[in-house]
Design a protein around this nucleic acid. Structure first.
Length: 579
RNA sequence: CGGGGUGUAGCGCAGUUGGUAGCGCGCGGCGUUUGGGACGCUGAGGUCGGGGGUUCGAGUCCCUCCACCCCGACCA
């Protein structure tokens, strides 16, 4: 490819609306261009990266027996009504009507379609197991797109679906994906970890996320210092200190003026946060008023609370709603509230003599004890894990890390196949629902995540396996120097004949411009041809991640390039930390 | 959806008490230059986000709508 005719130029300044470094570099290097919020075009260079990523994905999917097909982006709403998600999923599912006034949706995922294909084409146990996959556009009307390709509304996803006879079969398919994902991300050079995760709107029994470390990540992970436990904070558990039994002291009401926060209360009464019971109020999707009580030094994990209450969604309750049930914001107490689902954390159930609100401004109770002073509806672990807490496996210290979710695998079970009546007949002729799993990777997000992890102050440093081209070839001579450009052209032809993808900078620019653009774009190998090198019959070679260039005899350049690229490729493979 | 911010040339930005729009980079032409984002001359490029209002006069003041970004909510 000649750079003089490459569509998409490099920018000296990043657009003001790009904040995180990978987003800025992708735009500056001419990989992507924004169209609207959460909508991006991939320019030729960026699309090359994505295609490299998708090639890796296809190879590893094919290696575990995946069969590639292609399902539509536009679906009749009927099938989403059949699965129930038409009603369950919120506004992120884009809905519209066609010309005949039929409800339609834009695909945000394809479980329904796979279940439909399954009921049409799978009828016997003899046809199972199966793995099918496609790379197809998804549209999710995200409440807030952000950070370039990291969180977009329209994107391409590799989603695969396993179809099995039973749970044991699903375990096998799931493990195949687990291993394949490790290989894929390892080949992409990503620094990642696998963590357990919430099943969310997908439903099912088990989910794990592949997480790439990045301070700009949207998720917080908790990882044991001894590497025997890692989880998304949404589902992370931690070891609780053993509580000694104590005598339950008599309930006592005390005046505590101007103490609506735990900190103010602790200061006023000269106690520590773990001696307080904090009340947090939510409203469930069912309309229920949820009164959560947790020790003052812990925070509520809303995912855990949602699961404990069986609510599909919970939102903070309004002060009006709180007072309607007899509670007082800032001075809330489970004692005396009415018509509420009282969920207490184990820290409260197992503790004694807490200070809690009195549902009256300026007053608290001392010596509040669950079971004696009030009856909890539900006792559950609803505390959010945080750095410094103890690992539930080994007791080591949990540490926090930010990460970007690059892949997600789910054991779905029969949720969709039961709803859509996708059954097979066993050897005795009895029908059973097919057991499903689903597995996703966003290729664009993966591309930008690689940049997030692999760049320096000058630009991107692409790993060989995903680089848009292998080699940047620079001709460093005035346009009038036909000798140098002829030598560069000859080298270009030789490299391309040897199978390399070369970006040839044939622009009439000064050397500084070409060097800077080469660093910004970040191809693995840079070759420079100039009168200076040609005088000694040499070519300059520099890997993007090397600090110094080397001069190579013109006759030996192909060998030198091959050796350097293969050395880079080998060194760039990454493998995950054990979870 | 709540909070905050920004919309002026392709990109980054300035624009004073209201007086008819500029700078840098980039882009075209000519010339000089050629190993880490050269220089000179010259030129093109603007519904100042949209609409309404106040005013003799609005990029600037008022109202309203829109878009985009950030934080939160949200998120397979």
């Amino acid at each position: 490819m000649r750079m003089s005719h490459m569509f998409g130029r490099t920018l000296r300044d990043a657009p003001a609306d790009a904040e995180i470094v990978s987003h800025q570099l992708m735009v500056r290097a001419g990989m992507i261009r924004p169209l609207g919020s959460g909508l991006f075009s991939l320019l030729p260079m960026g699309y090359r990266v994505v295609k490299k990523i998708e090639k890796i994905i296809r190879e590893e999917m094919d290696a575990i027996g995946g069969q590639e097909l292609l399902m539509p982006v536009v679906h009749p709403a009927d099938i989403w009504k059949e699965s129930g998600r038409w009603y369950e999923v919120g506004p992120e599912l884009a809905r519209f009507k066609d010309r005949a006034d039929r409800d339609m949706v834009l695909a945000m995922t394809h479980e329904e379609i796979v279940a439909d294909l399954t009921r049409q084409d799978i009828s016997s146990y003899r046809q199972l197991p199966q793995i099918v996959y496609h790379l197809q556009t998804k549209f999710r009307d995200e409440p807030r797109a952000r950070a370039g390709l990291i969180r977009v509304r329209e994107f391409t996803m590799k989603d695969s679906y396993s179809l099995d006879l039973d749970e044991a079969g699903l375990d096998v398919s799931y493990q195949k994906h687990y291993d394949a994902y490790n290989k894929m991300f390892g080949r992409m050079g990503l620094d990642f970890i696998v963590v357990s995760a919430d099943v969310g709107m997908m439903g099912g029994s088990k989910s794990e996320e592949f997480m790439a470390f990045s301070p700009n990540g949207e998720d917080t992970l908790l990882i044991c210092e001894n590497h025997d436990y890692a989880a998304n904070r949404e589902v992370a558990v931690f070891a609780r200190p053993t509580v000694m039994s104590a005598e339950k002291l008599p309930l006592e009401k005390v005046a505590t003026p101007d103490t609506p926060t735990i900190d103010a209360l602790c200061k006023f009464l000269n106690i520590t946060r773990d001696q307080t019971a904090k009340a947090v109020f939510f409203e469930g999707a069912s309309g229920a008023f949820i009164f959560a009580v947790i020790r003052g030094d812990y925070d509520i994990n809303e995912t855990a609370l949602r699961q404990a209450t069986g609510e599909t969604d919970i939102v903070p309750a309004s002060p009006e709603r709180i007072r309607k049930h007899g509670a007082e914001p800032g001075y809330g107490s489970p004692i005396g509230v009415t018509d509420a689902v009282i969920v207490i954390d184990e820290s409260i159930a197992n503790g004694y003599n807490f200070v809690a609100g009195a549902n009256e401004p300026g007053f608290h109770y001392r010596n509040v004890n669950a079971g004696r002073d009030f009856e909890p509806t539900i006792i559950a672990n609803i505390a959010s894990a945080a750095a410094g807490m103890r690992c539930s496996v080994c007791g080591g210290e949990l540490q926090e890390a930010r990460a970007i979710e690059i892949g997600n695998i789910f054991k779905l079970g029969t949720r969709y196949t039961e709803k859509l009546k996708a059954t097979y007949l066993d050897e005795e002729g009895r029908p059973h629902p097919v057991v499903m799993g689903s597995y996703g990777i966003g290729s664009g997000r993966a591309a930008q995540t690689i940049v997030e992890q692999s760049h320096d102050e000058k630009g991107i440093i692409w790993p060989v396996n995903v680089a848009p081209f292998d080699i940047a070839l620079l001709s460093l001579a005035p346009a009038t120097d036909t000798e140098t450009s002829a030598a560069a052209e000859a080298l270009l032809a030789e490299l391309e004949a040897a199978g390399y993808e070369v970006l040839y900078d044939d622009r009439p620019e000064r050397p500084g411009v070409k060097f800077n653009d080469a660093d910004l774009i970040g191809l693995p190998i840079r070759l420079s041809v100039s009168p200076r090198t040609l005088a000694n019959n040499q070519v300059e070679m520099k890997a993007r991640k090397d600090s110094e260039a080397v001069l190579v005899d013109r006759a030996a350049i192909l060998t030198a390039v091959r050796d350097r690229i293969e050395a880079l490729r080998a060194s760039e493979l990454t493998w995950p930390t054990e979870s």
